[in-house]
Write a protein that binds this DNA or RNA. Sequence first.
DNA 1: CGAAGATCCATACCAAAGTATGAGATCGTT
DNA 2: AACGATCTCATACTTTGGTATGGATCTTCG
Lengths: 152, 152
Amino acid sequence: MSRLAASGALGRWSTMVMYGLVLAAVVATLKYVEYRFMVKSLSTEVYIGVVAALFTGVGLWLGSKLIADKKVVEVVPATLVDEQAVRTSGLSARELEVLQLMAEGLSNQEIADKLFVSLPTVKSHSSSLFTKLEVKRRTEAVHRAKSLRIIA
Amino acid sequence: MSRLAASGALGRWSTMVMYGLVLAAVVATLKYVEYRFMVKSLSTEVYIGVVAALFTGVGLWLGSKLIADKKVVEVVPATLVDEQAVRTSGLSARELEVLQLMAEGLSNQEIADKLFVSLPTVKSHSSSLFTKLEVKRRTEAVHRAKSLRIIA
DNA sequence: CGAAGATCCATACCAAAGTATGAGATCGTT
DNA sequence: AACGATCTCATACTTTGGTATGGATCTTCG
């Protein structure tokens, strides 16, 4: 939905046209005001101020149309893993696997079966994994890993 | 994090000041260019065009700073508890407390200390809690409770 | 009032988790 | 080739987790 909205909101082409038209309209309006009220000497600074304000608004509007939605698509998956954090954690591939299965509530024996290794091996991975995450228990490891976005 | 970024990114006050300074700088620059290159008649339209472009950029930038982050805070809280699920689970108040502390990685002893009860009491709550959630281990309980949105 | 559920605690016992130590095999890199 | 890291496994031991059983209050509700 967001992706469609982002790309479909405004084509590059029509955006440019609209843009030019708005600019022209602003200038025309200012000239008109100047003429209509016989104010010969509206200073350049005033023009610039008005235009600046107006186009800040335009930029804001454009931003909400083009950027906001895009940001959402970037942020929503933030509930997932942060590759950077995974690398920083220093966990090996195997340790990460064990950790993920732990998070799903599996016992060491079940993990061993699923990975086709022995129970001592899983315990070995567990211990080194706990050390790297600076925790003492599996539940703590899971909690920390989730808060660090190392696992989903 | 997002909340801090959203409110701390730009104070209303400093925003206005920056804004005025940028505007002043732009006008000054244009005047300088006009003087420096003896271009007496840079038309008002050119000024306006430049300023419009610049401040569209400013608006865009502001938008990305202020709007994007705001979107984030709207999206994130979607991951909370489902009161209905909590009631349906049949967990008592105390069992729920124990479960929540489990999810934070605390040991039974730590939970006992935090709730000012004995270790056997916590074990008692744990066991009945496991039965109600139909699990055998605390890690499994936490996993299930989270998927059911019984806990955050 | 009496039954039901919740909370609290205890003791005992078994299962699982975690630690310590050591060691063999593989692999990529210096 | 030598080194470090990873993966594997084992054995022994300690700690924590979980079950079973039972008992004591206390509250709520029909």
